[in-house]
Amino acid sequence: MNKELFEYVIRIADDSLILGQRLSEWCGHGPILEEDIALTNIALDLIGQATNLFEYASQIEGGDRNADQLAFLRFDREYRNLLLVEQPNGDFGDTLMRQFLFDAFRKPFFERLIACTDLQISGIAEKSLKETKYHLKHSSEWVIRLGDGTEESHNRIQNSLDSLWRYTDELFFENQVDAVLLDDFNFPKLSEIKEDWLKNVELVLDEATLAVPDNNWQFKGGREGLHSEHLGKILAEMQFMQRAYPNMEW
């Protein structure tokens, strides 16, 4: 098995899975019915992406574990998602800012990933890109409205931005996995994506009258399995059923 390729796919899958799980916490709690449905729609898109990616990861691994086992039976240190996506929902503004910073990365990432030489990954990227374009539109519109809204909404979402900004450098984290795969598979160079990301983020933040934080302190570790305290709690809730009743189906 190609260990690096497995890890590469797991990264993308874990980002989608954990953010999807987080967003699904809004189900029944959205500020209005329309947003309750919007957030859970996005959650479902993300879980769908994760399903496709875990199925492919299972193939790469040689079928030892199926997609469900990969999602539900790994330990926290084996998860490769970004710290950003495991951060708590907070208020509606926190959730939308987290979503915006992530979507703004995901769109150029999938756009470039389509050109990779692995047909499965390219196909998943093409399908996911359509969903991601809408996610980005939705989260951008909200960041603009909350930022350029009332004094209270402006201050609160500026706080969300200041707090979440510390998790954004990790979006572009690369290690030996990328070094081994990049040329062979024509995977995206994350340093190039960073330019696109920053340009789009600054454009939206400018329209939202929000200031890019000048604090450069950044967290990292998610891509190497070193997570914040929040992932354990997510997994406890997400994995409870499979661990309490192994192999259960419904």
């Binding site: 329309e34 947003e35 449905i37 919007a38 809408y134 519109e141 409205r145």
Partner: peptide
Amino acid sequence: AADAEMAIDNARDV
């Protein structure tokens, strides 16, 4: 919805 653009987005979702 707060405005026309958001009304379109919400209609898409709902």
